[in-house]
Amino acid sequence: MPNVLRNRAAVAALVLVSVAVAGCTGETPGTAAPTPGTSASSAAPDDPNVPKVANPLDASAFVGDACKLLPAAAAAELGFAEPGEASNDTSNPACSWHIRGKADGLQLILGSGNREKGMGGIAGLRKAKDSGQLRFLEPGPDVDGYPTVYYGLQDRRARGNCDLAVGIADDLTFSAHAGGYDNEQESCGNAQKAASAVIKTLKGA
């Protein structure tokens, strides 16, 4: 895996894991630690900044292999001819794709670990932003009817790195991280295309 993607993957995983850790330890000042196994969205049911998911999707079949979220044909359309590489570095299953000799990279992370710790969904990312763990969180365009947010330790879209989280249940997201591109249009466009392919996979599961 190219260093650019590896570094981005580490940061992305750190963000997702820090959300879960803060939620289960209660170390974040002013933030009550939810009971493990409960939905993070239930902690703030009236928060207008947290969109509800009208038609939740079941991603349980992909917890053991996040690479199956993106079919080979869909990956090829994004320029990734080689199979994805699974990562077990975090409690959230992940898979990465890259193009040999180029910086372009894609990573998908399923936030099932955050869900188990009661810090899943877009609500969990909102809590991380409110507590200062995330510096950047902004609503994104719906993908196939599912709400999204751009997020990260900082906004890196103008530099060709796009981090997009998609709410597929009130307490579950998956994230598409596209990086190493020349501009925001390419990186976020590919993140959205990958997200759409994942949603189609989940609907067909």
Rank of each mutant, 00 (worst) to 15 (best):
M1T: 11
L5D: 14
R8F: 13
A12D: 15
L16C: 06
V17M: 09
V19K: 03
A20L: 02
V21Y: 01
G23W: 05
C24P: 00
C24A: 12
E27N: 10
E27Y: 12
G30M: 11
T31M: 11
A33L: 07
P34M: 03
G37C: 12
S39V: 11
A44I: 06
A44F: 07
D46S: 14
D47C: 05
D47Y: 06
P48A: 11
V50R: 02
P51A: 03
P51T: 11
N55Y: 02
L57S: 02
A61R: 14
F62T: 13
V63P: 04
V63T: 14
K68V: 15
L70C: 08
A74M: 04
A76Y: 04
E77N: 11
L78S: 03
G79V: 11
F80K: 03
A81Q: 13
E82Y: 01
P83L: 10
G84E: 00
G84K: 03
G84N: 01
G84R: 02
S87L: 13
N88L: 00
N92L: 03
P93M: 06
C95M: 04
C95D: 01
S96A: 15
W97L: 00
H98Y: 07
K102C: 04
K102V: 02
G105P: 01
G105Y: 03
L108H: 13
I109L: 15
I109D: 07
L110R: 04
L110S: 05
G111T: 07
G111M: 08
S112L: 00
G121Q: 10
A123P: 12
R126A: 12
A128W: 12
A128R: 08
Q133L: 14
R135E: 15
R135F: 14
F136G: 02
L137W: 11
L137T: 09
E138F: 00
E138L: 06
G140K: 01
P141V: 10
P141R: 15
D142Q: 10
G145W: 05
P147L: 10
Y151S: 13
G152Q: 09
D155L: 01
R156H: 07
G160P: 10
G160L: 06
C162Q: 09
D163I: 02
D163G: 04
I168H: 00
A169H: 05
T173F: 07
F174T: 08
S175C: 12
S175H: 12
S175A: 15
H177Q: 13
G179K: 00
D182L: 08
G189I: 10
A191N: 08
Q192S: 08
K193N: 09
K193G: 06
K193H: 11
A197N: 04
K200N: 10
K200L: 07
T201I: 02
T201Q: 13
K203D: 01
K203N: 08
G204K: 14
G204A: 13
A205S: 10
